[in-house]
């Protein structure tokens, strides 16, 4: 695929592969992100997220495959669409001897920004007023992260490529950044590619999620359909779980034991009509004192997907 063959997606990779020696960092990853989409790139540490991001930013040469950003083929050493892209890779580091304002001024000059108050505006947006005269070496991790984000956003980019942007932020900061990214995507049409190792967090931000593990893209899910991928199960507690489980087994309903002393029934019919299970157990002399239909949580789902690959 040449530059002209890019399909109009804002971010696109085809068969992107990178090995470090014999270690597969990224293996044949093909993803596409449309304008205004927030694509969550989910994986454990070392899954290949940062290497993929570095290839998208032209910092690492792929062994094979291609990456396109804003319709332009990314090749290290060649000009890229960097005036349209804001990015944050791994932990945010800034020049320690420069203040917050000086660091941002340096970025604004390197990006040739003509807007006079670009630095003041981004300081205001990221709530860095109190620290603008503080040297970067004295910032907390959370404020360093804010400065990193400010550097990524200062030129009002059309595309944001962010590697774990919530790192080091407190809960209020995480919510703030989440809302900021949503606002950029929904109201300004900014395309966001954001990596994370936290499914529940990324599911609150992203419109689509790609799960990467050991360099492979394992699954892509539209966030609004995420619920359909999650298992539903019925949790039951009786005074005699073993006998209740045997009884249910006799009725063709498999009940497993959980660590917290519950019976776990995954049968879809039982989950849909738990009152029938309740009636069965009461009539058999095992009245439940706890009965709950539970949705699998996102972290469990993520770990299940990852775990199934390692078996």
């Amino acid at each position: 695929m040449t530059e002209k063959e890019s399909t109009g997606n804002v971010i696109e990779t085809t068969g992107l592969t990178k090995y470090y020696g014999k270690v597969k960092a990224v293996d044949n990853i093909s993803i596409s992100v449309k304008k205004g989409e927030i694509y969550g790139f989910l994986g454990l540490n070392g899954a290949g997220k940062t290497t993929t991001i570095r290839m998208l930013l032209g910092m690492v040469q792929p062994l094979s495959g291609k990456a396109f950003v804003a319709g332009k083929r990314i090749v290290p050493g060649k000009p890229g669409p960097w005036d349209k892209v804001g990015y944050l890779v791994e932990l945010p580091f800034s020049y320690p001897e420069l203040t917050v304002r000086e660091n941002l001024t340096a970025v604004s000059r390197l990006r040739r920004l003509t807007k006079k108050n670009a630095v003041s505006e981004i300081i205001s947006l990221l709530k860095l007023h109190a620290y603008e005269k503080v040297k970067a070496r004295h910032l907390s991790l959370g404020n360093s992260q804010r400065l990193g984000l400010a550097k990524a956003l200062i030129h009002q980019p059309e595309i944001l490529i962010l590697d774990e942007p919530a790192n080091g932020l407190d809960p209020a900061g995480i919510v703030e950044i989440r809302e900021l990214l949503k606002d950029y995507a929904e109201n300004r049409g900014v395309t966001v590619f954001v990596s994370s190792h936290n499914l529940s967090e990324i599911s609150k931000t992203a419109t689509r999620i790609g799960i990467i593990h050991s360099g492979f893209l394992v699954q892509e899910i539209d966030t609004d359909k995420l619920d359909s991928f999650l298992d539903t199960y019925l949790l039951i507690k009786t005074r005699n779980n073993s006998s209740a489980a045997s009884f249910l087994s006799g009725k063709g309903i498999i009940a497993g034991h959980t660590d917290d002393g519950s019976l776990r029934v995954t049968d879809p019919a039982a989950c849909e009509k738990p009152e029938q299970i309740n009636t069965l157990l009461v009539n058999a002399g095992f009245p439940p004192f706890y009965l709950k239909v539970q949705k699998e949580d996102l972290e469990s789902y993520f770990l299940k997907i990852i775990g199934s690959l390692e078996l």
Partner: peptide, 15 residues
């Protein structure tokens, strides 16, 4: 050493 290299690699100004 300061890990700032990545901030100056993907800019409109050439490397």
């Amino acid at each position: 050493a300061d890990k700032t290299i990545k901030d100056i690699l993907s800019l409109p100004a050439s490397r």
